[in-house]
């Protein structure tokens, strides 16, 4: 991470926190919804995008975090409940990840699908802990002796997103992160290079689970309800859509994808309200996800981030073409496309 990217991220975080705090409850809600979804997408991208472990249990893991934080919060743990939720989810994620030591690819993915359904079923039947299908009503976080409001949640969530991004960016740049990347490319090669594959996978599951749990804890406190229906396979699909649209293997892409997927329905809804056929537009909203994912997979599988990089690279090249003293670059000019000497 360069100093420049750190400062840009910090400025963006402060900007969004100010928007969330100053622009009324509706905008605050949008800001913290995107921030929470982004934390979830970051956690999923670590596992799928960086370590290559395909999982369908993200929704349930977020649910574990929500219930863990909700139960701790109702017991009076305050803000520390977020940490409780994150740790619970990390441990459950580790359990889900254990088969990954034996299974690979689709076989492992199916085992995570089973975990998603089992956990969701547990949310429904562990009545004393989860309040069953009725859902667990969660007390709000207390700030300065008063329940936190939407504006304060926006600041908290953006702050936690910034911290999550910072921590994960640092980790990715260490040997741990590099081990993830090698495991993703080829477990055989990783072993050949002396990477402890099992250890790398366990670390990825713990890390991913922790942040999924943090995401769940924030959902519980902001929505005031941890409900089994909210953590079904649909949430796993939404989260996967975020990292595909944003960019697999890109932390910034996770945040962009989360923003895109979270705000798209609202944008279509508002557009529909301007047109006479509002109902039709509403129905179109349902299809938008599917269409978008297909389009991204076909046209730019690496997501919005890669698309943006391509556009900027083309603009950069075009700008250079228009320079009058282009000749002066001579043979030492660097190609914007591939970074090699031209």
């Amino acid at each position: 991470m360069t100093k420049r990217s750190f400062l840009v991220a910090l400025a963006l975080a402060i900007g969004f926190a100010v928007v969330g705090f100053e622009s009324g409850r509706f905008w605050a809600y949008l800001v913290y919804s995107v921030a929470i979804a982004s934390i979830g997408a970051l956690s999923l991208n670590i596992l799928i995008g960086y370590c290559g472990q395909i999982t369908f249990a993200q929704g349930a893991l977020i649910g574990v975090g929500a219930y863990g934080a909700g139960i701790a919060g109702n017991a009076g743990w305050g803000a520390a409940s977020l940490l409780v939720g994150a740790v619970c989810s990390a441990l459950v994620s580790l359990l889900i990840g254990l088969p990954a030591l034996r299974l690979r690819g689709l076989y492992f993915a199916i085992s995570t699908l089973a975990a998603q359904f089992i956990l969701n079923y547990l949310f429904k039947i562990l009545q004393p802990l989860t309040n069953g299908v009725s859902g667990l009503v969660v007390k709000p976080l207390m700030l300065f002796g008063r329940p936190a409001n939407d504006e304060q949640y926006a600041v908290i969530c953006v702050g936690l997103l910034f911290l999550s991004w910072l921590v994960l960016t640092r980790i990715i740049q260490t040997n741990v992160g590099r081990a993830f990347l090698v495991v993703r490319e080829s477990e055989l090669v990783a072993r050949g290079m002396g990477v402890d594959v099992a250890r790398a996978k366990i670390q990825a599951f713990l890390l991913s689970g922790f942040f999924a749990g943090l995401c769940g804890g924030l959902i519980a406190f902001t929505s005031r309800l941890a409900n089994p229906e909210a953590f079904e396979i649909g949430l796993s699909v939404d989260q996967t859509a975020m990292i595909i649209v944003g960019g697999l293997g890109s932390l910034g892409g996770s945040i962009i994808g989360a923003g895109f997927v979270t705000l798209l329905p609202e944008a279509i809804e508002r557009l529909g309200e301007l047109l006479p056929s509002a109902d039709l537009i509403s129905a179109f909203r349902e299809m938008a996800f599917g269409i978008l994912i297909i389009l991204f997979l076909l046209l730019e599988p690496r997501g919005i981030v890669a698309l943006a990089r391509r556009i900027f690279a083309r603009r950069g090249a075009a700008a250079r073409t228009n320079l009058p003293d282009r000749a002066s670059y001579g043979s030492g000019a660097i190609s914007a496309q591939n970074g090699r000497k031209a």
């Binding site: 509706f26 605050a28 809600y29 919804s33 939407d150 809804e269 909203r285």
Partner: peptide, 22 residues
């Protein structure tokens, strides 16, 4: 204003804030 909550909790919570605040 007639809005679509899609029987999704997060969508309904968002709409509530829009109605109450905006």
């Amino acid at each position: 204003l007639m809005l679509d909550g899609r029987y999704k909790l997060d969508e309904e919570l968002k709409i509530y804030r829009r109605c109450a605040d905006q």
